[in-house]
């Protein structure tokens, strides 16, 4: 019953938006070749998942590192270790201050410029062998916990769709635009 009602609501929404923007009717194919079709609202919702640094794309929800610890232990620890430093897979914590040394350690805490990327990546790709099987709040929880392991948030800080984009990562300004070619070009092309 609840499901049927939800379907009806979505259908109404789709119909409304279709009639509001007249262009999105079923004939809206590519103008020159007459191929393709407008994606349905449901299709778009399923794939439109990226989160940008301004926080756009974050689903509503929240959690804390304290709450996320349990989820991390259950879903992440076997591959990333109890404190995110033990492996066997990618090291998630530590390495602060190591980037300019001869043995840099690139982690979420030492290298990643945006906290939103962490949520986006966990949402799309983790756990590695079962992506897409956590609730939204569980994702906020493990995100908070990985940030906590890196000393970026405190145990009880609420990490949510409003607070996550406001977190300034330690290496926020560590990236530069590709300057290559970075060696002199000896034989310039003849005009």
């Amino acid at each position: 019953m609840a499901i049927a009602l939800e379907r009806l609501a979505i259908l109404t929404l789709v119909l409304c938006s279709a009639s509001l923007s007249g262009e999105r009717s079923l004939v809206a194919q590519s103008p020159t070749y007459g191929v393709g079709r407008p994606p349905t609202a449901e299709e778009l919702k399923a794939i439109d998942i990226e989160v940008t640094p301004d926080g756009k794309g974050l689903r509503p929800g929240s959690s804390t590192a304290a709450a996320g610890k349990e989820v991390y232990t259950r879903r992440c620890e076997t591959c990333h270790g109890p404190t995110g430093t033990e492996g066997p897979q990618d090291v998630l914590a530590g390495g602060r201050g190591s980037l300019a040394t001869s043995r840099p350690l690139k982690t979420v805490g030492s290298y990643w410029p945006y906290a939103t990327t962490l949520w986006d990546y966990i949402n799309r790709a983790m756990p590695f062998d079962h992506p897409g099987t956590m609730t939204t709040d569980e994702i906020y929880g493990v995100t908070a916990y990985v940030l906590y392991l890196n000393g970026i948030v405190k145990e009880q800080d609420v990490v949510s769709q409003t607070t996550l984009p406001r977190i300034t990562m330690p290496n926020r300004d560590g990236f530069v635009v590709d300057p290559r070619p970075d060696i002199p070009i000896l034989r310039k092309k003849k005009p």
Binding site: P53, P104, V108, P113, Y114, V176
Partner: peptide
């Protein structure tokens, strides 16, 4: 998806960026 900014995905921040001796990293080294 056409956007007005890069998404800053994991593959263009954590990976596929080139760390320089001064600790900065080159990004979008295509």
């Amino acid at each position: 998806k056409l956007m007005d900014q890069p998404a800053m995905s994991r593959e263009e921040t954590s990976k596929y960026t080139d760390l320089m001796p001064d600790g900065t990293a080159r990004q979008f080294t295509f």
